[in-house]
């Protein structure tokens, strides 16, 4: 009975939401027909937000990758929040898993030689790839989050290949703290230098060059390190559980 009721509710919600979603414009849309209102200066502008990003993004942020421009610069504060969410998740998992940490690790079967060797070999390359993704965040698709995730997956590989592998928690913590402090520090520095939190105060440089787009690469490196160490921390906490 309950099952049927649940199903009916789910289907109804699905229908209701689907009816709303069909209103979302799809494909080629004319962004110019929107215009926005600036509540601070109380002015209406014949321009839409996405269109503005596309037209002016490169100029205003110095980032070649518009997505990065939006994520790190226009809406950098959201990114700070998202990083915090991840930080919270890792902290929360760490705090919950704390009781299990001191217990002994169970004997587990070793992985076979192929896996061990391959992961040893791949480990460095994957890290390198991850670093590449976040360092080039403002130039190519990708950025701190996927880069960090890639780094974490390299550690995951190690965990799978060597059951006794254990990343030092202290180091992970230091890494994520420093990365987080960098992010907030850059923000506060912007506040002091220019009066805006997270202001892009460094010179933009030439577009498409590695050293361009002001603070964006700095932030993305911090985010990458942070996400990498946090996800590794979560994996480690989960792996650390032994009955």
């Amino acid at each position: 009975m309950k099952r049927i009721l649940g199903g009916v509710i789910a289907v109804l919600i699905f229908i209701v939401l689907a009816l709303a979603f069909v209103h979302i414009p799809f494909g080629n849309i004319d962004l110019a027909e929107y215009h926005y209102y600036n509540p601070v200066d109380n002015e209406h502008t014949q321009d839409s937000v996405p269109q503005h990003y596309l037209d002016e993004g490169k100029k205003e942020t110095g980032s070649t990758n518009i997505v990065t421009a939006v994520v790190v610069d226009y809406r950098g504060f959201d990114t700070l929040g998202e990083v915090t969410v991840l930080f919270l998740a890792s902290t929360g998992v760490g705090s919950i898993m704390y009781i299990f940490e001191k217990e002994k690790r169970r004997k587990v079967r070793r992985a076979n030689a192929v896996v061990e060797t391959a992961s040893k070999l791949l480990f460095g390359f994957i890290i390198l790839f991850g670093a590449y993704i976040f360092v080039h965040g403002h130039l190519t698709p990708g950025g701190g989050f996927p880069g960090g995730a890639v780094i974490a997956s390299s550690f995951l590989l190690l965990y799978l290949a060597y059951p006794r592998f254990h990343a030092e928690h202290k180091n992970l913590n230091i890494a994520e703290s420093l990365a987080g402090l960098t992010f907030v520090g850059v923000g506060i520095l912007g506040l002091f230098l220019a009066g805006y939190f997270l202001y892009n105060f460094l010179p933009f440089g030439l577009p498409t060059y590695l050293f361009s787009a002001g603070v964006i690469p700095v932030i993305y490196v911090a985010v990458g390190v942070k996400v990498g160490s946090e996800l590794t921390g979560i994996v480690d906490a989960m792996m650390g559980v032994r009955e």
Binding site: K2, A10, L12, I13
Partner: peptide
């Protein structure tokens, strides 16, 4: 919690 989730669903439909 399953009942609770159902409450949530019913509430959504009702509010809507």
């Amino acid at each position: 919690p399953q009942d609770y989730a159902a409450y949530l669903g019913i509430a959504f439909l009702l509010f809507l």
